[in-house]
Structures are given as C-alpha cells and as structure tokens.
Amino acid sequence: MVFDPATLTYNEAGLIPAIAQDAENGDVLMMAWMNAEAVAKTLETSRVTYWSRSRQAFWIKGETSGHVQELVEARVDCDRDCLLLLIRQTGAACHTNRRSCFYTALRDGAEVELMAPEAD
C-alpha cells in the first residue's frame, strides 16, 4: 500500500504534530508541526522538514544550526493525527542547545532542570 500524506488527519491549520525520537536509545527529543508537504519532503529526502508556524515557512532541521535530523522511520498513530519520527540526531535537538526539548521535570510542585545546554 502506497502512503499518501493526504490520508493523515490535520488540524484546522492544516498541521499535524510530529514527535522526534532518537532511533537508537528511544529518547524523546522534540515535538514540532508538519503540513502535508513537509511530510512528503521528509519522506522523499530523509531530512526532517517541519512547518514553522511563526515564520510560515518550511524548516529543515539543521539547515542553519548543523543539528541535522535524519529520518530512520516514520510511524502514524492509530487515529492518524500524530506522527512519530524515529531519527538520527546530530548535535542538540532543542533550540536552547540541549539534546532534548524536554529538559524540565515537574517534581513536587517545582521545576527541575534535567540537563544543561551542550557546549559548542
């Protein structure tokens, strides 16, 4: 069966959430948005391409930072309204220069920073 990005369920803005997970160790690295064209570009090139809501433009992860995401496998959830991207991450995934965007834990009513930014 050939995959068609149009078969996914997008929100009212034409976007679908995409969770980036390290293919080797299972770490959840980030969540960003994709439209149908970003999904198609990602599958075509294996370079993860997101849709930037603030810039209203495509965003190829690592294009300016060098922190590239290479697609290993894409998975669709049961409702077809969320993607899981298994990736090979080069450098930090987060714009704060941390390995993961999920670096703050909520513990006993307090925020706890789990990791510091990576050194350049």
Score class of each variant (00 low, 15 high):
residue 7 T to C: 02
residue 7 T to N: 10
residue 9 T to F: 04
residue 10 Y to I: 03
residue 10 Y to D: 02
residue 12 E to S: 03
residue 12 E to P: 01
residue 13 A to C: 08
residue 13 A to Q: 15
residue 13 A to T: 05
residue 14 G to T: 03
residue 15 L to A: 07
residue 15 L to H: 04
residue 15 L to E: 04
residue 19 I to L: 15
residue 19 I to H: 10
residue 19 I to W: 12
residue 20 A to Y: 06
residue 20 A to D: 12
residue 20 A to C: 12
residue 20 A to T: 10
residue 22 D to F: 04
residue 25 N to F: 00
residue 25 N to S: 00
residue 27 D to P: 02
residue 29 L to E: 14
residue 30 M to R: 08
residue 31 M to H: 09
residue 32 A to M: 11
residue 32 A to N: 09
residue 34 M to H: 10
residue 35 N to F: 07
residue 36 A to E: 14
residue 38 A to I: 01
residue 38 A to M: 00
residue 39 V to M: 06
residue 40 A to W: 02
residue 40 A to D: 09
residue 42 T to D: 08
residue 43 L to M: 11
residue 44 E to C: 00
residue 45 T to F: 00
residue 47 R to S: 05
residue 48 V to I: 10
residue 49 T to H: 09
residue 49 T to Y: 10
residue 51 W to M: 09
residue 53 R to T: 14
residue 53 R to C: 11
residue 54 S to I: 09
residue 54 S to Y: 14
residue 57 A to S: 15
residue 58 F to R: 10
residue 58 F to I: 07
residue 59 W to V: 05
residue 60 I to E: 13
residue 60 I to V: 13
residue 60 I to F: 04
residue 62 G to P: 06
residue 62 G to S: 01
residue 63 E to H: 05
residue 64 T to N: 03
residue 67 H to N: 15
residue 68 V to F: 13
residue 68 V to G: 01
residue 68 V to I: 13
residue 69 Q to F: 03
residue 71 L to S: 07
residue 72 V to A: 12
residue 73 E to V: 04
residue 74 A to G: 13
residue 75 R to Y: 13
residue 76 V to Q: 05
residue 77 D to L: 08
residue 78 C to M: 00
residue 78 C to V: 01
residue 78 C to G: 00
residue 81 D to C: 07
residue 81 D to M: 04
residue 83 L to K: 02
residue 83 L to T: 00
residue 85 L to C: 10
residue 85 L to S: 11
residue 87 I to G: 03
residue 88 R to C: 02
residue 90 T to R: 10
residue 90 T to G: 00
residue 91 G to L: 03
residue 93 A to R: 14
residue 93 A to E: 07
residue 93 A to C: 13
residue 94 C to S: 07
residue 95 H to Q: 08
residue 96 T to R: 14
residue 96 T to S: 15
